[in-house]
Each structure stands twice: as structure tokens, then as C-alpha cells.
Design a protein around this nucleic acid. Structure first.
Lengths: 138, 138
DNA sequence: TTAAATGCAAATGATTTGCTCTTGG
DNA sequence: CCAAGAGCAAATCATTTGCATTTAA
């Protein structure tokens, strides 16, 4: 089943910034003006259900999606909010089994490395000031 | 500066479940009926700004708070949504510096171990079926 | 007294849903 | 033809804000 689904999926797959539903919608609009935001949400939801897309955890309450299915983790810039992928293979790499909770069956690892990206390093008037939400301003 | 702030802070500090603002509000209401949810949000915001409280990352868009300032990470049950603390000291413990992004200055680690907790292990009709949101039902 | 904190209600923003209309199979 | 998908608008939820009132310092 797929018409504009392809469009949305491709847009997400070709975007390394882990866009929000809204961003994706805007990015796809020009080539498909009638596509509504609600539909984008529905498409993302089904893609997630089908396991083609993942929702990445954030601390600001806005959903961000990722079509990169290869096991990887994220690096987040606290200043510009940019999210980048890094290859930290799987559970084994970080002593997962050592969860001190009895009876808990660990299944997956979700790691986020917080810091400052190259562009944002060096004071507030640096080179690439990004537009992505600079924490809490909703 | 502090009247009902103490109440909210104490409620959070004495709750290992990483409650949402709403849960905290409900939990404190009986002893302070006039306390509004908006105020709880404002209190949590200031406590966060003062560094007494942290917001934990979630994938479902609802803010959860944590008053445990000691460096630690979280274990999340995918079934009942419960979030528990575990002691995974600091950055050093997980080869942090190996971020493959040039120019990125890593500052903190945010790890979440996803899995199934003891109570939820063993089919949907198991012992302790928790009330915490079983994923996406907002 | 006096800026900061609180209450309430209304405003926002993100996400979801109801319902109708299309359309791919 | 027919169920699944798309559109649009209205509904929900979580969170924030405006403003008048209260209060701790």
C-alpha cells in the first residue's frame, strides 16, 4: 500500500537531521501540495508500526523520526538541537547485561551523547548558528 | 523562594517512578488542594533551571522528571512504561570520547536500556500489570 | 514594600480522530 | 467493488501564558 507514502518515506530516508513530522511535511509539500500534516503523521505512524521508521527520544516533547534501521546511536548538540548518527554497534559493546534490576530482560540500548557540535562551539556568535530549537522555546 | 515548591520537590524526590507533571500534581493535591497544574509546571521548570531536577528523555512526548542528581542512567520497561534508575557511573565507563564526529565536544551521556521488567515478563495477563501508559494512547 | 510566586482561565503547539471522499488492487 | 489511504476540520493532550492577587523576604 503506497502513494504519497513513498514520498514521505524517501524524504525521511534522505534526511540525516531526524526531522519532525512538521518539517517533513514542509519538505514534501512543494511536490505534493495537497498532502496534509495529519496524513504525514498517519504515514509515519504506520511506517513505525511496520518497523521501517523509528521515533527517537527527545527531551523537548517533539517527535523526531529516523529511517536509519542499522543499529546506531545519537549525538545531540545542546545548542542547536542537531541530532547526528554514530555507529555504536549493539548491546554487547556497552556492558548491557549488567542491569542491576532483577528480572528485567534488556532488549535494546538507546544512547544519546550530549554536547556541543563544531558549528556551535565558540560562543553564541559563532559560525553556523542553526535554526533547530535551542531548547525549550515551544 | 519556597512554599509549595517544597511540597512538589519532596514529592518528586520521594518518587522513584519519574512522574509526569500531572502525576505529581495529583499526588500532592490532597495536602494542598489549591495547587494548580500550571504552578506545578512552573515549579518544575524553575527547579530544572536551578539544577535540582532533571527532565528525562522519553519517546512518547510526555515530560517526566527526576530529582536524583547522582549520575545514573535509566532502564525502561516497554510494556508498562516504568522507568527505573541504575548506576552506570559516568562518561568514562562507556567509551564516550569515541564520538566519530569531528569537532563535537561530548559533555554528557544519556543511556536508556529498553526491555521488559519482571512484572511484565510472561504474557499480557501477568502479575503486576501496571497502569503507566502502555505506549501511544495519548 | 516589592519583586517573585500562585491561581485560574484562556492560548498554544503538537498530535490524533471523525468522517467523507478517493483510489489502488 | 471495497477496503485502505488521504484530506480537512474539529478534538485532545500536554504545556505555557496573561493577568490579577498573594506572599515571602
Amino acid at each position: 500500500v503506497t502513494p504519497q507514502r513513498l514520498t514521505v518515506y524517501r524524504a525521511l530516508a534522505g534526511d540525516p537531521t531526524h526531522p519532525t513530522a512538521d518539517t517533513l511535511h514542509a519538505r514534501v509539500r512543494p511536490g505534493m501540495p495537497s498532502l496534509s500534516l495529519a496524513t504525514v503523521y498517519r504515514i509515519l505512524e504506520s511506517l513505525e508500526r511496520e518497523g521501517l521508521v523509528r521515533r527517537v527520544s527527545t527531551v523537548d516533547g517533539v517527535a523526531r523520526f529516523d529511517a536509519n534501521l542499522a543499529p546506531h546511536q545519537h549525538v545531540v548538540c545542546r545548542v542547536c538541537g542537531q541530532i547526528m548518527d554514530i555507529e555504536v554497534k549493539t548491546l554487547a559493546e556497552v556492558s548491557l547485561p549488567r542491569v542491576g534490576i532483577p528480572g528485567f530482560v534488556a532488549e535494546a540500548l538507546d544512547i544519546r551523547i550530549l554536547g556541543t557540535c563544531a558549528s556551535c562551539e565558540g560562543g553564541p556568535s559563532s559560525p553556523a548558528r542553526r535554526s533547530r530549537k535551542p531548547r525549550r522555546s515551544k
